[in-house]
Amino acid sequence: MASDRILDAVGLRKRFGDREAVNDVSFHVAPGETYGLLGPNGAGKTTTISIVTGLLAADAGTVAVAGQPMTPTALAPRRDVGLVPQDLAIYPDLSARENLKFFGRLYGLSGGTLEARAAEVLDVIGLADRARDRAKTYSGGMKRRLNIGIALLHRPKLLILDEPTVGVDPQSRNAILEAVERLSGAGTAVLYTTHYMEEAERLCDRIGIIDQGRLMAEGTKGELVRGIGGRDQLTVRGTGSLEAGAAALRALPGVESAGVADGTIQAAVVNAGQVLPQALAVLTEAGLSVTAANVEEPGLEHVFLALTGKALRD
């Protein structure tokens, strides 16, 4: 394992009956890095997380956390991991403070250290004023924040969040994303699974695209887009001859293709920002009265579509 890796997963495989849930998945996470596993439901994200955290044994492959092999019976590497499971993992009949202290004790914290860390985390997750109330009286967002807070209590080197914003209201979701950004900024390595592209784009330094148990591609967003030869999408609405307008666009340098679809002109353009003024000029010359023009940069949705042949939200 390279010394700059807090998590190193190599060749992970896991089969449930006939179904290959995880198929030769390899990735690593460096200290302070946020790595995203992006894929639809059932892609293999949670199974991968379960292997990485030692909940499940892999059929093949290895996981090392801070250089220590992670298996279902290994205890030492678990101390370096904070897990935020997909489902709420809190006790509703215990208060936030009791939940924190219970799990803190399981991670070896005690006495003044435990009290201090619990108070600190309660401040971070904004539950200090409700610390003594039972968790069942909390709103959904408060429960989510407590769910994350428990994983932070023992200051893990690697924080693993398994779709932490599913079913969360926008305000709480934003609070969670900000918390992850803060933690990453403070040097904590984060493994973040999601099927929300915007979360992956906002949070992740590198992203792994996973589908049907396979890691299709990984890299920064730019690397992934370049990897599929991504182009900006120019969409024009107007009155007049759309076909003539499309033909005029095709003659412009930087326009790779242009056609008419759904009552609009759609063109694939290299660096649309530079081409747009010329494009509007030739469209006017071609007799088109432009009412709207929109430039869309290629995103992870396009990457996912190109790699898997289907939309992420399918």
Partner: peptide, 11 residues
């Protein structure tokens, strides 16, 4: 209740 993964992920 969802707490089992967190319990067995503990050291």
């Amino acid at each position: 209740g969802g707490t089992l993964p967190r319990l067995i992920a503990a050291p």
